[in-house]
Design a protein around this nucleic acid. Structure first.
Length: 544
RNA sequence: UGGGGUGUCGCCAAGUGGUAAGGCAUCGGACUUUGACUCCGAGAUUCGCAGGUUCAAAUCCCGCCACCCCAGCCA
């Protein structure tokens, strides 16, 4: 699929300016996920920006696991993250682990101690909070702030050697306890955590904080532009402070942008994790999940997701994009490529009275409108149509089958309804029609308002069809209480029928069921047990 | 409340002193063997609000308002 136009955004302008002013020869970015969960559509934005900007300037982008906190991370997520990035179609120059730079981080910490701009603090968690002050009141210096360099060096080494319990001491930057920016009030740089790290094993029991490790990692890798979300804006002075104090010759620049929010979608890893753990979904790749693996499972194409991200754009204003935009992007992609197939979700039997019992005729159906590739379907006396495509008491402007009404059966003949049967509860059980032999598909001038999809009863293959709705109800329906916002009807499983040609397709095959929307053969489906997930409905397909 | 940000059509988003791009959604109309698709067309006298500077302001100045982020030994 052709790449959609890449809009020129403010980040690109800043980079162009840097290139002009600083004479940058190579643009280096990085995508730094913390391996504590699966990537979701929100990460896709960061990812697209990091990778595509590097690409646009002929530079490169590294994948770097931001794994400085062993209490929250797991190797389990590492492979999944790479798989999702690759699926989206991006290529990293290198895969790095932030934790592989722990030695350098340690050296830098020692350097800061020697320079007198870092100290070991014995204050406990609560005391640190008390000393920090508030938004309006300045903090006060820690009583340990003026320890000698020698003592700090000694203590810090002993922290590293595991002599002290968790939480007993921290290494803090010595900046300004009265700074109006709270992030600059002697922030912690290292903490003690006696826990083995998923990537470093038991080598360390002290771990650097994000604010200390990230700029160091960026500087080591030669990252020229460290792109991140808005909440790090107030951390930028600290980022710059670390780079400055560590005296790196290479100075990375942090630029922030607004993260992606989608209507009717949870984007918080904590909430997504709870959905998985509480069994409300089948896993991280449940097709209702906004995770990349969930969207993939549901049938979304990587192209459509990238297109969506580029259309959303990059800016600094908080925003919530309507899911309709995402859906438009998949429809646009699928409309061009997805084969049109016959499936009946809720069957209603039609008997063609003037068609001989046991007789069949092959009718040809195009895979794509106007396309040359075709396959055949047997037309016969007994057919299935969609239950909602017949109405004994049609409302005005009902174009589908109704008593004495005419309709075209896609690819086959025009039929006229002559009658119908109902059961004791007044449910329609069968519809009787006559066909007009003059109206064979492709060679008839006669126009009728409605065209229905259908399946021969003899050849229809049972299939499980899953119809998804948004996992969350609109906020207006359920307010802010997350649990109340979960949509109980987010999944409907229907036992329907599909045409024979479709039953042989591979899992992942995407198609459009006439008038029902776009579907994807589920990864769990087999030729004997076809399962189709609805990716997205057709626009206005069910409107009368 | 101190600091840092942001406010342009229902939702995103261009615009950087010269008279409001584009996309999604919506509404018309054409086409159609999917009420889909496609195709045409309609939409902000107005840029959070109020003053000011200027021949000219969404863009500059001033005051105000609203929303978001920061008081983790999370990232």
């Amino acid at each position: 699929m052709e790449e959609i136009r890449a809009p020129k955004n403010f980040i690109e302008e800043m980079i162009e300016q840097d290139i002009a002013e600083k004479g940058l020869a190579h643009i280096q970015t990085r995508f730094p996920p913390e391996p504590n969960g699966y990537l979701h559509i929100g990460h896709a934005k960061a990812l697209c920006i990091d990778f595509s900007i590097a690409e646009k300037f002929g530079g490169s982008c590294n994948l770097r696991y931001d794994d400085t906190n062993p209490t929250k991370e797991d190797e389990e997520y590492v492979d999944a993250i790479q798989e999702d990035i690759a699926w989206l179609g991006f290529h990293w120059a290198n895969v790095f682990y932030g934790s592989d730079y722990f030695d350098t981080c340690y050296e830098m910490a020692v350097k800061l101690i020697k320079k007198g701009v870092a100290f070991v603090c014995d204050l406990g968690r609560d005391q640190i909070r008390e000393y920090r002050g508030t938004l309006t009141e300045p903090g006060k210096n820690s009583p340990w702030r003026d320890r000698s360099v020698e003592e700090n060096l000694n203590l810090f080494e002993r922290m590293k050697n595991g002599e002290f319990p968790d939480g007993s001491r921290t290494l803090r930057a010595k900046i300004d306890m009265a700074s109006p920016n709270i992030n600059l009030r002697d922030p912690a740089m290292y903490r003690i955590i006696h826990m083995s790290h998923h990537h470093q094993g038991d080598k360390w029991c002290i771990y650097p904080m994000y604010d200390f490790a990230h700029p160091i990692q960026d500087a080591i890798e030669g990252v020229t532009h460290s792109l991140c979300s808005l909440e790090y804006e107030a951390h930028r002075p600290l980022y710059d402070w670390v780079v400055e104090q560590c005296e790196f010759s290479h100075r990375p620049r942090q630029i922030e942008f607004a993260r992606l929010n989608l209507t009717n979608t949870v984007m918080s890893k904590r909430l997504l994790r709870s959905l998985v753990e509480e069994g409300r979904v089948t896993g991280w790749d449940d097709p209702r999940m906004p995770t990349l693996c969930g969207l993939r499972r549901r049938g979304y194409t990587p192209e459509s997701i990238r297109d969506f991200i580029f259309r959303v754009g990059v800016a600094k204003a908080d925003s919530t994009v309507e899911t309709a935009m995402l859906e438009h992007c998949v429809r646009e992609d699928l409309n061009a490529h997805a084969h049109r197939m016959m499936a009946v979700l809720d069957p209603l039997k039609v008997i063609i009275e003037n068609w001989e019992e046991g007789e069949f005729e092959d009718v040809e159906l195009e895979y794509l409108p106007g396309g040359t590739e075709k396959r055949a379907l047997r037309f016969g006396r007994e057919l299935y149509i969609e239950r909602e495509d017949f109405s004994p008491n049609p409302p005005p402007k009902y174009f589908r089958l109704k008593p004495d009404g005419e309709v075209r059966l896609k690819g086959a003949y025009v039929v006229r309804c002559t009658g119908y049967e109902t059961d004791a509860d007044n449910n329609v059980t069968a519809v009787y029609c006559t066909y007009d032999p003059e109206t064979r598909g492709g060679q008839c001038e006669r126009k009728v308002k409605g065209t229905l999809h259908w399946l021969p009863v003899a050849d229809a293959i049972p299939a499980e069809i899953r119809l998804y709705e948004n996992l969350l109800l609109p906020e207006t329906e359920a307010g802010q209480d997350f649990t109340k916002r979960l949509n109980p009807n987010s999944l409907a499983v229907v036992q329907g029928f599909i045409e024979p040609a479709l039953a042989e397709k591979e899992p992942g095959y995407r198609c459009q069921f006439m008038r029902m929307g776009y579907f994807c053969a589920d990864l769990d489906s087999t030729p004997n047990k076809p399962i189709y997930n609805r990716i997205v409905g057709l626009k206005d397909s069910f409107k009368l």
